[in-house]
Simulated scan of single mutants.
Amino acid sequence: MDLYFMGTNAGVPSLERNVTSLALRLFDERRSFWLFDCGEATQHQILRSPLKLSKLEFIFITHLHGDHLFGLPGLLSSRAYQGGDTPLVLFGPPGVKRFVNTVLELSESRINYKLEIVEHEGGSLFEDASFRVESAKLDHRIDSYGYRIVEKSQPGKLNQELLAKHGISPGPLYGQLKRGESIRTSDGTILRPEDVLGEPKRGRIVTILGDTRPCPAEHPLADRADVLVHEATFMHDLAETAYTYHHSTARQAAEVAKQSECKSLYLTHFSSRYKYEHQLQQLLSEAREVFPDSYLAQEHELYPVLRGE
């Protein structure tokens, strides 16, 4: 599981940074990736990345501002030309279906794969045997949502030495134990999963928030997350400006990470006024005064999501 940023600027792109887009790469877990927001030129950024649109499984849109959305029609249209024929599910706020359908209809674009568009207003969005995705509304000028991706805990390691003593070799019975089912040995002994499995591997939690002022809804989404991705549009000397435009400062992002007991914080969505690296480093320094495990999101770099204790 890795994060891969393809856009970290707020509002408008610059020569160095594109507008918002972030991939959660799940190649080991699902042989796919999930996309969070799709600002203009996201498909160009994907061409420069280790990602392939044919492996795109889900898209999550945080809100309908253009710097988070305007790359969506082109990407959806291009996916088929890059081998994407598997179903694709798009989650987003009310209105995203009308936006996509209108653009595709007026441009007479044809999509030869199944596209499902799920409009939501928060709550539980997706769950299978491996992952759960939850959402909640934040505090922005228009409805903006955060997403909490929870990897379910995995069974611990089987005690193969103990199983061998009971005459159990690798095979279907191993699978039953890992699924939480008891088995009966050839001599009639009942082996329960807890008898032969080590401690479960804790699943990882990734929280990706849309544009927002500081608000109570952030904390349940970010609670003990291994990674929190939070906007840091301004430095704290512009806290009033941030409040007026429904954004957050780097310090406020760090406060959320600290209060929610996150493991790490990635800052993104930087105002275009911060053009130079030394200005961005000031944002980082401001955050690290509150939460030392803060990092600036850099485009076209992989950030592994490590398993916490």
Rank of each mutant, 00 (worst) to 15 (best):
Y4H: 08
F5H: 04
G7H: 03
N9R: 10
G11T: 01
N18K: 02
L24D: 10
R30G: 06
R30I: 06
R31V: 03
W34Y: 05
D37Q: 13
G39L: 02
Q43G: 05
H44M: 11
L47N: 04
S54M: 09
L56C: 01
E57H: 09
F60N: 00
H65F: 07
H65A: 02
D67P: 13
L69H: 10
S77F: 11
S77Q: 02
Y81R: 04
G84F: 04
G95D: 09
T102S: 10
T102C: 09
V103G: 08
L104I: 09
L106K: 14
L106D: 08
R110Q: 14
I111A: 03
K114S: 04
L115Q: 05
E119W: 03
H120I: 07
H120P: 10
E121G: 13
L125F: 10
V133I: 12
S135N: 07
S153N: 14
Q154C: 06
L158Y: 09
E161T: 11
L163A: 01
S169A: 11
Y174S: 00
L177G: 00
G180C: 03
R184K: 11
T185C: 10
L197G: 01
G198Q: 13
E199T: 11
T207Y: 09
T212M: 04
D226C: 03
L228G: 01
E231I: 03
H236D: 14
T249C: 06
A250T: 01
Q252E: 12
Q252T: 05
A254V: 06
V256C: 05
A257T: 08
A257Q: 13
Q259N: 11
Y266K: 00
Y266W: 14
F270I: 02
Y274P: 11
Q279Y: 13
L280R: 05
P292N: 10
D293T: 07
L296H: 12
A297I: 00
Y303T: 02
V305T: 02
L306F: 15
